[in-house]
């Protein structure tokens, strides 16, 4: 168990060489590699962290953008829906208005048509009534009736008021033509004389007379001198009746027209038109029915009084 000092020295040197070699070939490269790898891993981790952060940021941005997009979409959708609704309302309103206008136009034209028809009917009825009246009266007219008519005419002449007489005299003086006496039938000589006498009483002095026959008078006598006219005839009564009926119709038509512009409802106008259509003939019938007998009684009553 001796210590070999050469071996000791040699082993010390060997060991120092080994230390240097191991440092050179083992520790340094390994430690460097470890450091490098650690750095690399750290860098990669940092990179990953950065990328993660970036990804998160991008995700947030994307989310935000998405939200914005959603909001914009919703807004646009809402707007579109609102616009559509408004447009629909507008179109509906327009369509309704158009329909209303068209309907009212149709109603108007219908009413106008009905009115025309009514008027026509009224006119026709009137004409018919008058023609019937005329025909009846003309058929009834006779010489004896003429006698009564002449009497009534003479009575009217005598009953002329002073200013009317004056007008008659003025008219007669202004025109030298003979006084025209028209009648439905040829007047008998007696009657002609009576008339001449009455006229002469009014006018005084010589007067020329001209007697003529006019069937349109139906029954009665008409005296005319330069625009002045004295007459008694059934035709005159009928004419005045016709005038009054026409006036009544016109008066009736006015409020109807006013109502038409106010009311848009069909039913109302319909009933009114119907009423008018019904009323008018009733009204026209009544005066005719009444007038005719009145004339007759008047015509008949007068001679009785005499």
């Amino acid at each position: 168990m001796k210590i070999n000092w050469f071996t000791v020295i040699a082993q010390v040197i060997n060991f120092l060489i080994l230390v240097w070699l191991m440092k050179r070939y083992l520790y340094k490269p390994i430690l460097n590699a470890i450091d490098e790898r650690e750095k690399k891993i750290a860098a990669e981790l940092a990179n990953a962290e950065t990328q993660k952060a970036e990804a998160a940021k991008e995700q947030a941005e994307l989310k935000q953008k998405n939200e914005q997009f959603e909001q914009a979409k919703k807004g646009l959708m809402d707007k579109a829906v609102n616009d559509t609704n408004e447009e629909r309302k507008k179109l509906m309103e327009e369509a309704r208005n158009d329909a209303d206008a068209l309907r009212s136009k149709q109603e108007d034209s219908l009413k106008a048509m009905q009115e025309n028809l009514n008027q026509e009917i009224v006119k026709k009825t009137q004409d018919e009534v008058f023609s019937i009246s005329r025909k009846v009266l003309a058929e009834l007219a006779s010489v004896s009736l003429e006698q009564e008519s002449t009497n009534l005419f003479i009575k009217r002449l005598n009953e002329l008021k002073d200013d009317e007489k004056k007008k008659f005299i003025d008219a007669f003086k202004a025109d030298p033509n003979p006084v025209l006496v028209q009648s439905a039938f040829v007047l008998p000589a007696q009657q002609q004389t009576d008339i001449q006498k009455s006229v002469k009483d009014i006018l005084g002095g010589e007067t020329q007379f001209k007697f003529s026959v006019s069937p349109g008078i139906i029954s009665g006598i008409e005296l005319s001198a330069n625009g002045f006219k004295v007459a008694w005839s059934i035709s005159e009564y009928l004419n005045s009746l016709e005038r009054s009926i026409n006036e009544t119709i016109k008066e009736k038509a006015k409020p109807e027209a006013e109502k038409k512009t106010d009311a848009g409802k069909k039913a109302e106008t319909e009933t009114e038109v119907g009423l008018a259509a019904k009323e008018v003939p009733v009204k026209t019938e009544e005066p005719v029915a009444k007038a005719v007998p009145e004339k007759e009684t008047e015509a008949k009553a007068e001679p009785q009084k005499k």
Partner: peptide, 18 residues
């Protein structure tokens, strides 16, 4: 020792896979 160290460390990798 030196040879084996040299053999191993001559192609060290700094990658994650070694």
């Amino acid at each position: 020792m030196v040879l084996s160290s040299w053999l191993i460390t001559r192609k060290l990798k700094a990658d994650i896979k070694i």
